[in-house]
């Protein structure tokens, strides 16, 4: 069995720390404006502008508080939207490749050595 993630959980079941999870950080200085039913987002590092749907924009909004992984983002969005975490996971996972390509998000890989 391959160990991919290690979770530190409190006696009350609260996730305290997670290792081995890919985390994502929002690029600094992003400008975002609602344009019709989409969002226009300007990335200062690439100089590019992208039009995002609400799901992708919601991910960027959660990341404004700091880097997070898919599970944490799904948790936050599930709380806001009332959707189940399972339903959100697929949606959010599908966003990453495009958000990274647009320069709006970067991956932060936790080194395997941290898994002990």
């Amino acid at each position: 069995m391959e160990l991919r993630e290690l979770h530190l959980v409190s006696p009350h079941g609260r996730l305290l720390r997670r290792w081995g999870v890919t985390q994502y950080a929002r690029t600094e200085g992003i400008l975002a404006e609602p344009i019709g039913d989409l969002w226009a987002v300007f990335c200062p590092t690439s100089g590019e502008t992208s039009l995002l749907n609400n799901e992708s924009m919601a991910v960027l909004e959660v990341l404004e508080a700091g880097p997070a992984g898919t599970a944490a983002i799904c948790g936050a969005l599930a709380e806001d939207s009332g959707e189940s975490i399972e339903a959100l996971e697929g949606l959010i996972e599908a966003c990453w490749a495009q958000l990274i390509e647009m320069g709006l998000v970067r991956e932060l890989r936790v080194p395997r050595t941290m898994l002990g």
Binding site: I35, G36, D37, L38, A40, L51
Partner: peptide, 8 residues
């Protein structure tokens, strides 16, 4: 036109 078409 919708705003997003106009923006583009």
């Amino acid at each position: 036109l919708t705003e997003n078409v106009l923006f583009g």
